[in-house]
Amino acid sequence: MSTTKVDPTLNAKVVPVSTHLEEAEEDNRMFGFIVFLLSESVIFLSFFVGYIVYKTNATDWLPAGFEGLEVREPFINTIVLVSSSFVIYFAERFLQKENLWGFRIFWLLTMAMGSFFLYGQAVEWMGLPFGFKDGVFGGTFYLLTGFHGLHVLTGVLLQGIMLGRSFIPNNYAEGEYGVAATSLFWHFVDVIWIVLFLLIYVWR
């Protein structure tokens, strides 16, 4: 029979094998989600590259009669969004310590901060003197902020779902993939915003 000895060094490298498909899927979800996020970041990267190319090559970049974007309010918005990343971190910590109410409060706070950001964004859009048809500046501005805003909105909605599910008894007893993924997504959206802010508002 060919049943020879198994190389003892192998076991160290062995990937965990789950016997049931459902279990395997649980294990793999976070990995898959990270792969997905890495891939998605390339979309943003492409938009950024497009923005840089337009900005460096365009002859008249800003729409006629427009002096440049207001930085103050967007900066406040930025502070709120970036701090929410820390808040969501604490929410997760509470969940790990199985303090459900702590989790819910901080989680809700994150949602509030995200919504504040969206509100601020909407106010800014309303007040702008140019539209998305006004040259490539108008186009890229609304494309970038809009596409990012869509992600913030998705994040807030996901957070809502996770919050709701925390009321199902024992649902989060052993940690929860959904919570971890949502919070990772939130950090991702944050980092993208920082780059976006630097490119659009800070870079003159």
């Binding site: 898959g32 792969v35 997905f36």
Partner: peptide, 18 residues
Amino acid sequence: IMGAVNIVTTIFRMRAPG
């Protein structure tokens, strides 16, 4: 993209022992 995420995860995480 859905297919790619799936395949990459499968290859990274589900190889048989050894």
